[in-house]
């Protein structure tokens, strides 16, 4: 061991404390009763400790969700921080669960905890992963659907980070529209 240097290094703090939530669909319970807070973290090291401790997205049972939200914001439309907001929605084809889902979800998490959206980071509320038999979905939630500059900046950065080509578009939907209409009829407020 001669010559080995042991460094005492402090953990790297994140700008925000984040909460990871898990939803498991049990039809005998209410939606809220199926939603569980897993844990909160606020350092890079603790993020990886958690990430490696839980199931990867592609291994979740259909009907389950992961949500990562800033501490103090609950992963539901009704939360005061979400109710005027909306989401950038990435819809995956069935076969993409095995090719893209884990990569897209990790990239989404890194965008959030690393504060990739620069001056519009304050608009970010969280992100939601839905694992579904008919096709998985990932969405980045922001707090104010009418904040065009913030929403479009976040959408452009997010699309680039996912490595989506110009041929692919992703849409932003206000939660008020999603809540009042059947999902496939929800109109996109913005598209990138």
């Amino acid at each position: 061991a001669k010559g080995l240097v042991f460094e005492m290094v402090e953990k790297h703090p994140l700008q925000n404390r984040w909460a990871l939530w898990f939803f498991k669909n049990d039809k005998s319970k209410t939606w809220q009763a199926n939603l569980h807070l897993i844990t909160k973290f606020d350092t890079v090291e603790d993020f990886w400790g958690l990430y490696h401790h839980i199931q990867p997205a592609s291994k979740l049972t259909p009907g389950c969700d992961y949500s990562l939200f800033k501490d103090g914001i609950e992963p539901m439309w009704e939360d005061d921080q979400n109710k005027r907001g909306g989401r950038w929605l990435v819809t995956l084809a069935k076969q993409q669960r095995h090719t893209d889902l884990d990569h897209f979800w990790l990239e989404t998490l890194l965008c959030l905890i690393g504060e990739s959206f620069e001056r519009f980071g304050g608009d970010i509320c969280g992100a939601v992963l839905n694992v579904r038999a008919k096709g998985d979905k990932i969405a980045v939630w922001t707090c104010e659907a009418d904040n065009r500059d913030g929403v479009t900046h976040i959408g452009r950065v997010y699309k680039e980070r996912l490595g989506l080509t110009q041929k692919v578009t992703i849409g932003y939907q206000a939660h008020t529209d999603t809540a009042s209409k059947s999902h496939n009829l929800t109109k996109n407020k913005f598209v990138v």
Partner: peptide
């Protein structure tokens, strides 16, 4: 200042052992 970390920086810590 604001704590921004790019993806490469974050990924560097992926397999780093850490005391918890």
């Amino acid at each position: 200042g604001k704590k921004q970390y790019d993806r490469e920086f974050l990924l560097d810590f992926q397999f780093m052992p850490v005391c918890i």
